[in-house]
Design a protein around this nucleic acid. Structure first.
Length: 431
RNA sequence: GUGAGUGUAGCUCAGUUGGCAGAGCCCCGGAUUGUGGUUCCGGUUGUCGUGGGUUCGAGCCCCAUCACUCACCCCA
């Protein structure tokens, strides 16, 4: 019996890696423009970190974490999300002392023990960004603009940005009480889950998708109508800035977050094209988190995107697959020897080159060149070898021209590097 | 944790009332000397998820088990 992988933890095979690399490279490029720098933190942290940040009573902490004891009986957890580890690192290394405004991004695997389904896996990947040190509403807007630009640049268009405010520790408790008393008057209409949780986590009830709950809470009080003066001003300033920047968004007063640390501005990028899952990216402000984790009272805001979900939306794009610039088709032992040396020299100089090693017919070799998507094929047979000139075939047009073997290396480097720049140009304009 | 569905070639899937294990794609070779994409011809590929049971005979019927998928839930 062969050993298989673990449920919900997937291999990303060469055929699908092009999209992943594209999504990651695009994030680096776009986030870089906004002044973000990458940070890499471990995949494992002390369990306490997630309990303190995400919240003891959240589903993630209660039943979804991969928690285990190491050989010294310390409780460790595979990170279920990225913000808490990044904040831990920021506090530990006092990054806020080097720069009052810290902008970080990260990408990597996260782990949650859930039943896998479409767009939801036990090991999944996030690309996230965090800004620490500013509570200016323009920062909220900037983060949202950056998020929207990312989606535009990677060509994922069928999404919408949902915006809400969850208030702060000044105004949320009062709202919570108002919501509980509203819900208490109509518990009969709520689904089983909501009847249980309306006391512990009433905000979750207005986010419930059960039809009963949905209609029962239709005119429930909304957080955005109960914001304190400060939060209300902040929310309006964020909206005004987004309007100035012509960013499309919808206010969704029922949107709630699954992690306890969120305050004020919260948002989700949602889609209808992911089956039961509709969030591709989500985030918000977390003004109390850093202090809660033992750091200074610094405000923060950030988001995370699900890479598997982005990849599902993006789909397979053959244009993203790396193709050889050249295939060398050699016939006969002497030609194969020359071809292998030439191929290696070109590879050393940065050209993607392929050849055949099985001594196949010219027809079979050209067929393979076509299949690999090579832009050109250099044919070297006995006659070419004797004449000292190969035949360079343009695989798109079918045009062929002689190419002196003595000068082939330099000519091909020059030519194929040029075509590579043209290809990059095409990719850039396509965005 | 709950529910439903599906397991047959590398991939997508047929398989009749229980009677020799199939197709398409992929891969390999060929269609007058050494030229790809279209077409035509030929070929390779199997623990029918696994273990039991019924039967002269099981891919098909029965029991168990495992895996996967989707949904609930939750969320990126």
């Amino acid at each position: 019996m062969a050993i298989t992988g673990i449920k919900g933890m997937n291999d990303i095979l060469p055929a699908e890696i092009a999209v992943w690399q594209y999504l990651e490279a695009s994030a680096r490029r776009v986030f870089g423009c906004y002044g973000f720098n990458e940070i890499r933190v471990p995949v494992v942290e002390k369990t306490e970190l997630f309990k303190r940040s995400i919240g003891e009573t959240t589903d993630i902490v209660e039943k979804e974490m991969y928690t285990f004891a190491d050989r010294n009986d310390h409780s460790l957890t595979l990170r279920p999300e990225g913000t808490a580890p990044v904040m831990r690192s920021l506090i530990q290394h006092k990054l806020f002392n080097r720069d009052p405004l810290t902008k970080l991004y990260y990408m990597g695997p996260m782990f949650r023990y859930e039943r896998p389904q479409k767009g939801r896996y036990r090991q999944f990947h996030q690309i996230g960004a965090e800004v620490v040190g500013a509570d200016d509403p323009r920062i909220d807007a900037q983060v949202l603009v950056m998020l929207c630009q990312y989606f535009a640049e990677v060509g994922i268009t069928d999404v919408s940005l949902q915006l809400n405010s969850l208030g702060c520790k000044e105004c949320r408790p009062a709202y919570r009480e108002a919501l509980i008393s509203y819900l208490a008057s109509r518990t009969d209409a709520l689904c089983e889950d909501c009847q249980r949780r309306f006391q512990t986590n009433p905000l979750r009830v207005i986010d419930c998708k059960a039809v009963g709950c949905n209609s029962a809470t239709a005119d429930a009080p909304a957080m955005i109508d109960h914001l304190c003066g400060h939060c209300d001003n902040h929310f309006h300033a964020v909206r005004r800035t987004l309007d100035d920047l012509e960013v499309d968004y919808e206010i969704n007063p029922r949107m709630v977050r699954g992690l306890d640390y969120y305050t004020k501005t919260t948002f989700e990028m949602v889609t209808n094209n992911l089956g039961a899952q509709n969030a591709v990216a989500a985030g918000g402000r977390y003004d109390g988190l850093i202090q809660e984790l033992g750091g200074p009272a610094l405000p923060g805001i950030g988001f995370a995107m699900g890479v598997e979900r982005l990849a599902l939306l993006k789909g397979e794009d053959s244009q993203l697959v790396e193709k050889p610039a050249l295939f060398i088709a050699a016939l006969g032992e002497g030609a194969q020897r020359v071809a292998f040396i030439l191929m290696t020299r070109l590879q050393r100089r940065g050209v993607r080159v392929e050849m055949d090693y099985a001594g196949r017919s010219l027809k079979a070799q050209i067929k393979r060149a076509d299949k690999l998507g090579a832009a050109h094929t250099l044919i070297i047979g006995e006659t070419e070898l004797a004449a000292g000139a190969g035949v360079l075939r343009d695989m798109t047009s079918g045009d062929q021209e002689p190419l002196a073997l003595s000068a082939a290396e330099d000519l091909l480097v020059q030519r194929l590097v040029c075509s590579r720049i043209a290809l990059d140009g095409a990719l850039t304009t396509r965005l």
